[in-house]
Amino acid sequence: MRQYWWKILSFILLLYTFIAGFLIKVPTIGNLYETIRNLFFHVPMWFGQLILVSVSLVYSILYLRKPQHNYDLYATEFARTATVMGCLGLLTGMIWANYTWGAPWNNDPKQLGAAIALLIYLAYFVLRNSMTDIDKKARVAAVYNIFAYFIYVPMIMVLPRLVESLHPGGKGVEGNPGFGGNDLDPTMRMVFWPAVAGWTLLGVWISTLRLRVRFLEEQKHLH
């Protein structure tokens, strides 16, 4: 029996996010004003993306340990949904930046890192599609996926913290004070984490839908 409770949970969490996210009182920080509410929508895209690429990484490692075709499919589809979420994260970030930092693209280290990381993941799909041999494709893609993950994490999480960044958490933050860590309002936490869980579950749901289509396709080819 297929479990479906987590799909309903995902819906409830996001419904809560969409209602509470607009209605709770938020602190006024710098020039953010009401746009601080983007924390409930833009940031969970990246948290969800990070979780999905981590799942993809685990399946790539599993594939290299024990070459099962299913592992390869799991790694691909989770990376695919993660890439879509990453694109949405980048776009929503650009909208937000336009109205708080003055321009959609500020060459902020985190923006650059995220863009490069997304390109690396796009290359993963290009690499996959460039090979016809199923086993070779799966093996090379798994190795590349592990490489991609370990360049992705420093790109968006380590490098932006080592240099000056407009994003919270960077060195010598100007214009936009950080609201990460201790500065995050407790009421905002109560919306932020459910939002992360909700978006992640929705991402998993969409990934499993794609996976089921892939399995159906494979079954069709076998018969």
Binding site: R2, K7, L202, W205, I206, L209, R212, V213, L216
Partner: peptide, 12 residues
């Protein structure tokens, strides 16, 4: 997404 899920279940 729910309708998509149902459709895929039917195909399965």
């Amino acid at each position: 997404v729910y309708r998509l899920d149902r459709k895929i279940s039917k195909l399965e």
